[in-house]
């Protein structure tokens, strides 16, 4: 096997050479900047840096989810829309590897955003509100043992896992339906709309509700010690996510490898 890294570099080039990627990153950073600065200017009673951090990570992850979905959805579908898929596939590479390189580049983009958001929030809020090394239980998570900085590393990590599942779903829809718009619309619909009904679902007393993807997408519930449904554990949630993940990936690969690319 020769240079597989080259394929990933290609996909990265296609992500970062587009203006939209930088617009998205810019929006994210600008928004949290505005929140921090705004709070600093308006607040009479300065909040701790971690509570600001907390609000902003909620907003930040909402944006990251949307942006990752957009990129994941475009990754395969755009190639079909523009017709470049034909040029891409007639190279001495198997379709699986081409798909894998796309998938990796999407995950790298998700990772980049997550790390960027964390570092930016940390630096910004420490600067504006003063660094404080207090325990997380002081301000944000009453049941958490450990400092707030560590809490948020774990918080981001859990969110990143959900992000991977979401991105994989968008990627699957993109590869299966070959339409970027549909992939973006459907994924966002599922994530944003269904998530607001998750609370309702969670009250339902049926066994099958335990296996719904959306109940498990929010892993942070375990950090705060307030699971949506009684008796759910982190391990169980991860197992359910894992099964969905495998199904998504298998379906994506199967469809992409079998498909005729009509001229």
């Amino acid at each position: 096997m020769f240079n597989f890294a080259g394929l990933v570099m290609n996909e990265n080039m296609k992500i970062y050479r587009r203006a939209r990627t930088w617009v998205m990153l810019g929006i994210m950073l600008l928004l949290v900047l505005c929140i921090s600065v705004g709070t600093r200017l308006i607040a009479t009673n300065l909040p701790s840096m971690w509570s600001v951090f907390n609000w902003e990570s909620v907003v930040g992850f909402l944006l990251i989810t949307v942006f990752t979905t957009i990129v994941a959805a475009g990754s395969v579908a755009d190639e079909f829309t523009t017709g470049t898929i034909k040029l891409l596939l007639i190279r001495p590479w198997s379709r699986s590897k081409i798909l894998l390189s796309k998938y990796i580049s999407v995950l790298l983009f998700a990772l980049l955003q997550t790390v960027l958001l964390y570092l930016f929030l940390l630096a910004l809020n420490a600067l504006l509100f003063g660094y404080d090394n207090s325990a997380a239980s002081d301000s944000i998570a009453p049941f958490y043992k450990g400092t707030a900085a560590v809490y948020f590393i774990q918080y981001f990590f859990y969110h990143f896992i959900s992000l991977i599942v979401t991105a994989t779903m968008a990627f699957m829809i993109s590869a299966v339906f070959r339409s970027g718009g549909l992939a973006i619309g459907l994924s966002l619909f599922l994530i944003l709309i269904v998530n607001s009904f998750v609370g309702l679902f969670a009250i339902l007393n049926y066994a099958w509700v335990d296996y719904l993807l959306f109940i498990h997408l929010d892993l942070v519930q375990y950090l705060n010690g307030t699971p949506l449904r009684e008796g759910m554990t982190l391990g169980f949630s991860l197992a359910v996510l894992g099964i969905y993940y495998v199904v998504f990936v298998a379906l994506t690969w199967f469809v992409f490898n079998k498909r005729d690319v009509a001229a």
Binding site: G6, N10, M13, K14, R17, T82, K86, L87, P92, A263
Partner: peptide
């Protein structure tokens, strides 16, 4: 091969397009 119209990545430069395909071989 060129299949129908030569569709390239419009948001990349011509050179980047060539680099892109060169990396695949």
């Amino acid at each position: 091969a060129i299949v129908e119209n030569p569709e390239m990545y419009k948001y990349l430069s011509g050179y980047q397009n060539l680099i892109h395909f060169a990396r695949m071989i």
